[in-house]
Design a protein around this nucleic acid. Structure first.
Lengths: 164, 164
DNA sequence: TTGCTAATGTTATAATGTTGCAAATTCCGC
DNA sequence: GCGGAATTTGCAACATTATAACATTAGCAA
């Protein structure tokens, strides 16, 4: 395993984006779903950032594109992308981020850096299992699980104070 | 342990509320914080429901009280109550619920029923540990942990279909 | 009292998300 | 290709959630 997770080190992110888009096209084909230009463009925009984008951020970029879009356009595209597992909504940020496990069955867990804003999506079976177990103890049947951890990423961990 | 968690069975909820308020007064005293009438009333309103209340729900009840409050009044009271660990914000619902572990150091996990809307707060050490571990593996330093599980509570679990 | 701080009031506005309907596009069987 | 059905998009209005900025008041101590 590499020394640090992808968002935390430099890389050619265009490649990530291109791969994500290719994967999305493939997934949509399998699902018999139409990855229309607007939807694809929204997915691309979201992927171009390791930081989550708000719906209105997306809207603003579309406007720069010359696409005279209204909020429903963006929200509909985002709904579509979510339904097909291509993006996740981060509830604590009201924002969206590309799914790095598209196509796989997974329960995401998100590490959100307070300082740099980057978000790392993790598949943590230990966490999923613990959640499932805790819910089962209450006879609760889980459906959607939201796990969002805000804190400091390796690059932004505050220096330990020496003077105390 | 009782057969089902509190929100799921009938009980005299006024007692819960009264206890919560008494506890809140005590905690605020310890913190040297002022549980003013507005703050206390907001806490009471939130506690009177097992379902999370939105800020504007609270506002509406305050209006019925004859308190001519504006949004900042409510949001400020809620901020105060959150800071002192008396209520939690449920990010996936934009709503607030009374903390059932006020004063204790805890990481809440919330079971939110799609059908009846009730929310159960749980302290699940297994989950917390798994989250801490998963974060540590990424050298991530957690600060706020949000765990919200939407699904079906024991009273609302859909009947298993017999015809398939 | 005087003066400081915390708390509240007030107005306006920002940010986020939805509804409903009409127009356009795409799909699909013929 | 053609026509009807279904999906997608455009668009306007609106609903909900949250905050900014500044004035006022209440609590409290010197």
């Amino acid at each position: 395993m590499s020394s640090s997770a992808l968002p935390y080190r430099p890389h050619n992110h265009e490649v990530c984006v291109a791969q994500a888009l290719a994967e999305a096209r493939s997934i949509c084909q399998q699902h018999n779903a139409r990855l229309t230009p607007t939807r694809e463009r929204v997915l691309e925009l979201i992927w171009q950032s390791h930081k989550p984008l708000g719906a209105y951020d997306v809207l603003a970029v579309l406007a720069e594109d010359g696409h005279n879009a209204a909020p429903p356009t963006v929200y509909r595209a985002l709904d579509f992308l979510q339904q097909h597992g291509l993006v996740h909504r981060i509830a604590s940020l009201n924002a969206f981020i590309g799914c790095t496990h598209a196509g796989e069955r997974h329960n995401g867990m998100f590490l959100i850096c307070h300082t740099c804003g980057n978000v790392l999506e993790l598949t943590a079976p230990g966490v999923s299992n613990a959640v499932t177990l805790a819910a089962a103890e209450q006879s609760f049947q889980p459906d959607d699980v939201t796990i969002e951890v805000a804190g400091y990423c390796p690059r932004c961990v505050p220096e330990p104070a020496h003077d105390r």
